[in-house]
């Protein structure tokens, strides 16, 4: 299943992808139709252009932005294509017990950018959907905002900023949305400790300083 998904060669484009390719042409870096889901990759510098084209084209008419989120591909040597064996090996080591947990080695960072920002688009006229992805590197996690295209992107981009630390340039109000303003770091990044609590209210009582339960 994963092999199928992660093959480098694109399969046959779906009818929707053909329309998208005809409209966007060279701006699509990569495309794939897999089990009914259509996905394209574009360059992050062209995201606003691409989104405007997808929204305003009468054939496509993606007038609803369903979600904006991100993926952290940290530790996957060639990005999103062949992650499976590495994560399987690490998971097997973790399962062996708590002692071997510290031996889990994150593989070297691959050549592809670490993050991908994902946009899910829906056309309320034609009821077709498209997944739009942009790779974003770790040392410069910035991206132009699409709030000018869909105003509803405002909070979705704030959420992505809050949890992944991706900065949307030109966003009218890029603040944290879920976590407290005092929070340090971005917890859905793979290098954030899963149990690294940052209490807002000081803890006390009998359980306050109890060690966390082992897995």
């Amino acid at each position: 299943m994963h092999d199928d998904e992660n093959q480098a060669t694109p399969g046959e484009p779906s009818p929707l992808l053909r329309k998208v390719l005809a409209r966007l042409g060279q701006q699509v870096l990569e495309h794939r139709a897999w089990r009914g889901d259509d996905r394209i990759h574009v360059d992050r510098r062209q995201i606003v252009e691409v989104c405007l084209a997808l929204r305003d084209d009468p054939e496509l008419c993606f007038d609803l932005l369903v979600d904006v989120t991100a993926v952290d591909y940290m530790g996957q040597p060639d990005g999103f294509r062949r992650p499976v064996e590495i994560w399987d090996r690490n998971r097997a080591m973790v399962r062996r017990g708590p002692l071997s947990r510290h031996q889990v080695a994150m593989p070297e960072r691959g050549p592809l950018p670490r993050f991908a920002v994902v946009y899910h688009l829906l056309s309320t006229r034609f009821f077709h959907r498209l997944r739009l992805k942009c790779r974003v590197p770790e040392d410069d996690p910035t991206l132009p905002t699409v709030t000018t295209v869909w105003p509803g992107a405002n909070w979705l981009e704030r959420e992505t900023y809050d949890l992944y630390g991706i900065r949307f340039q030109g966003h009218p109000d890029l603040r944290r949305i879920y976590l407290d303003e005092s929070f340090v770091g971005h917890p859905l990044r793979k290098d954030y400790g899963k149990r690294d609590e940052q209490p807002v209210q000081p803890l006390h009582g009998p359980a306050a300083n109890e060690p966390r339960r082992p897995h």
């Binding site: 899963k194 149990r195 609590e197 940052q198 209490p199 209210q201 009582g205 009998p206 359980a207 339960r213």
Partner: peptide
């Protein structure tokens, strides 16, 4: 929810 976001028991905050 054994994670960064959830208080691990409200007895850490109030009686």
């Amino acid at each position: 929810y054994d994670n960064y976001a959830v208080v691990q028991g409200i007895d850490r905050i109030i009686p």
